[in-house]
Every structure is written in structure tokens, then in C-alpha cells.
Write a protein that binds this DNA or RNA. Structure first.
Length: 316
DNA sequence: AACACGCGATACGCGAGACA
DNA sequence: TGTCTCGCGTATCGCGTGTT
């Protein structure tokens, strides 16, 4: 224990952590060496030194490649976090040098980046133009990984199942009901009285298996006696969905706020069919393990202000 | 079985920087 | 200024796997 403590405090350096992360990424000494611009023996020797210093092996070597040991998994996980924190420090130092006194890195789901976030960012910039805003748009799994490593401060998107989100604090902002939408060019004539049966021969845009809304949507189709559409495309990209709806006779499930926005551009129209169980619960999430930066705190307050007045806004 | 190949480990040495 | 440490280089070895 004393040896481990001494080695971690005195010898384990960012260079070593970069090496461990590269080895985990590539699972190959030669490729990790190329990535780090060193020779393969340098990697081999450095890893051996780290393992000797710590007193346990971090990677299992086999002809089929490298595999992390439980010790290795632990150290690589912390190395990623520490390197991300150092990158934060670098960015903040750079920002201070350039007269920028604050920053917030926010990850968001595609639908949010079209509707809520542009308003939030413009409000933030009105009140705090010196705050640097760094954005990442991705699916929730990828955003959660970035949040864990500290590369982003906040996620704005669909709220996860609370039982599976032990490592984050969260705040619900609003509920955005989903509606069925078609492209305005392809709107049916009897749109006000249209029934489910009339949509059977449309191309359906479905969320992929495993997404939060896939099962509820399948249930709704079943309740309305619509067999799962053979003519369908799976997509979670809001931009792609809007594009498909505009360009062909298709129907898709979209958040009301997205449809509202594209209706104002003359591109989409919502169908008056009831989807009682389908509502996106949109919220903000942040890591329990790190204090929110002043920039992230400010963005959270602006998120709360911005959703006030939306039909499904959470009471604060 | 013999061979080629890929991959990680080892031996040895060099250059740069820290320190007495 | 000499010595030591660190980080990395080249050359080479040993092992496992795939191919003929």
C-alpha cells in the first residue's frame, strides 16, 4: 500500500496516463506507439515500469491483443478523467490569456440543438459574452461518456431512467409531447379528420430499437391496430427525419417543439392524432463527482428561465 | 513440419536536464 | 563540471500463429 501510494504520488505522470489511454484505445503496442510518436519498445518499457511501480499488471498480453485487467480498467478510467481535467485547465488558462473569464461545455441531443439550445446560447451570450461556449451534439450514450470523463459540464436532453443514473444529478426542465408529422408538401387533404388507417401506406420513420421512445411507439401502433410498418426507415436524426418528411410521403414521430419550429418555416405539419403516452422529458444532467463551473451554473439558470412558459415546463 | 510473419520484450546506448 | 536519472532510440530475441 505504501509503495502504491508513493508511486502514484511521486512517479505517475500525465505521460504515463496518455500511454495507458492510448493502449486502451488501440489495444496494440505498435499503434499506440505510432499515435504517441514514440517507438514500440518505449511503450513496452514504460508500461512495464508502470506495472512494476504499481505492483500489479494493467494489461493482459496475448497474441490476440491486449486486454485490461481489473487494475488496468480502474487506472485507465481515472487517467481519462485526469487528462480531461488537465485539458480543461489548459483551455481555461488559454481562455484567461485571451481575456475570456469563463467557459461551459455542453452536450446535447440533436432535437434540443434545433429548438431549445439556440435560445439558451443567445441568452447566455447577451448577458455574458465573455463566457466561452463549447458544444457537443451526440446520442445519449456518447454524451454520458463525455460527462464521465469531464469533457463536458452539462448534458441537455432526454432524462434517463433515474435507476440507471447513479453518477449524475439532474433537473427536469419540461415535457415535450411527441406528435406525428408529415411534410407540408405531402400533407393529406383530410388532415383535420385523418385516422390511423389512412397512414398505413405511408413510409414510417421509426426510432431505432433500444431508443427510449421505440417501445411506447410500438404500443401506440398496436393500440390503434396498425401493424408494424414494413415500409419504414429507422432514424434518430432529427435533421434527417425532417429531410425525409419534406422529400417524400412519409410520417414520423417528432417532438412538438421541433414540429412547431419547422411549421413556421413552411416545412412540416403536425397530424391531430392522439399520442397520450409519448412525451420527451427534457432536462439537464451533470456529474455528481464535480462541482459545476460558474459557466455551467449560469447556463443551468438560463435553461430554467428559457423553458418558463413552455406548455410542459417543470415547476421550479 | 518448416517457414514467414507479427508482436511484445530485452539489451544496450545516447542525449538532455537536474543537481551537488 | 561530473554524475545521475529519465526518456527514448536501434537492434535483436523469443514466442505464437498462419500458411504451404
Amino acid at each position: 500500500m505504501a509503495k502504491l501510494d508513493w508511486y502514484i504520488k511521486a512517479n505517475l505522470k500525465p505521460r504515463h496516463m496518455q500511454l495507458l489511454v492510448a493502449l486502451d484505445n488501440f489495444r496494440h503496442f505498435g499503434q499506440a506507439a505510432q499515435y504517441l510518436n514514440v517507438s514500440q519498445p518505449a511503450i513496452s518499457k514504460s508500461l512495464a515500469e508502470i506495472e512494476t511501480g504499481l505492483g500489479f499488471s494493467l494489461f493482459e498480453r496475448s497474441p490476440r491483443g491486449l486486454r485490461l485487467t481489473p487494475h488496468g480498467e480502474c487506472l485507465v478510467r481515472y487517467s481519462r478523467t485526469i487528462l480531461a481535467e488537465l485539458a480543461h485547465a489548459r483551455d481555461e488558462l488559454h481562455a484567461i490569456s485571451n481575456g475570456v473569464v469563463n467557459r461551459v461545455a455542453v452536450g446535447m441531443l440533436p432535437g434540443i440543438s434545433l429548438t431549445l439550445m439556440p435560445k439558451v446560447i443567445s441568452k447566455l451570450k447577451e448577458t455574458s459574452p465573455e463566457t466561452a461556449v463549447i458544444t457537443r451534439e451526440a446520442q445519449m450514450d456518447a454524451l454520458r461518456a463525455l460527462l464521465r470523463t469531464g469533457e463536458i459540464d452539462l448534458i441537455v436532453g432526454l432524462m434517463p431512467d433515474r435507476s440507471q443514473a447513479h453518477d449524475v444529478d439532474s433537473q427536469t426542465l419540461y415535457k415535450d409531447p411527441m406528435i406525428l408529422a408529415v411534410g407540408q408538401q405531402h400533407a393529406p387533404e383530410n388532415i383535420d379528420t385523418i385516422g390511423w388507417k389512412a397512414l398505413e401506406d405511408y413510409l414510417w420513420i421509426m426510432p431505432p430499437i433500444g431508443s427510449l421512445v421505440r417501445e411506447p411507439i410500438e404500443l401506440i401502433l398496436e393500440q390503434n391496430e396498425i401493424p408494424f410498418p414494413a415500409n419504414h426507415v429507422e432514424s434518430i436524426s432529427v435533421i434527417l427525419n425532417v429531410g425525409v418528411l419534406q422529400s417524400t410521403r412519409a410520417v414520423g414521430f417528432l417532438p412538438t417543439e421541433v414540429v412547431k419550429q419547422f411549421r413556421s418555416y413552411g416545412q412540416l405539419i403536425g397530424l391531430p392524432l392522439s399520442l397520450p403516452t409519448l412525451a420527451y422529458e427534457v432536462g439537464a444532467m451533470w456529474s455528481k463527482e464535480r462541482a459545476l463551473s460558474p459557466g455551467a451554473e449560469r447556463m443551468l439558470r438560463i435553461l430554467e428561465e428559457t423553458v418558463v412558459g413552455l406548455p410542459g415546463a417543470a415547476a421550479t
